[in-house]
Amino acid sequence: MRLRDGLFALPSASISLDIKLGLKSGKAAICVKESSGIFKSVVEEVENFLKISKELSYECVRDRYGYIWFILSSSIEAETAAIDAIIDTIEKNGFSSNILAAVFEFLNKKRVYLIFRFNEKKFYPFVLINNKRDISEEMRIYTLIKNELPMIDDMERWYPMWNMPL
């Protein structure tokens, strides 16, 4: 079993989130620390791959922390597959330690994010209601999907990600 398999459990878990909480999957993104040298060509390679993918549109954004975000809009299946392919490309070039996390957005009145920590291969929830973090909603999401997705159980490691570009 590959470590990244947790990522592929996401499309079915997203169905539960829709049925139980009415959350519709939105954009997805992967967040990678920028480096010098050949990292530039890796970014180009990823962008070339995303350009030819017909089923998704993408955006490439740099944030103030020095991370580069590839933001994808498509079905959650296509987004998950594309993120897996991006991870492959980055790993192949020896930059796997630069990958921070993949983020999946789910929307209704709230903004729910499932953050996939790349080095742990596990998810944790991050919820914003009117730009305020809502821990009780995060706990509810955790409770509802912990049987379907590998989750980070320790809430002391549920780090927020503020002002994400997606």
């Binding site: 922390y65 996390a101 706990m139 002391e156 780090y159 927020p160």
Partner: peptide, 24 residues
């Protein structure tokens, strides 16, 4: 979940949930 939250706050567990950004 609201009583669970209250227990987390009362026991001080809530304050141990990080507020610092993951990237930072």
């Amino acid at each position: 979940i609201k009583l669970a939250n209250a227990l987390m706050k009362i026991s001080g567990k809530m304050s141990r949930i990080p507020t610092r950004d993951l990237r930072e």
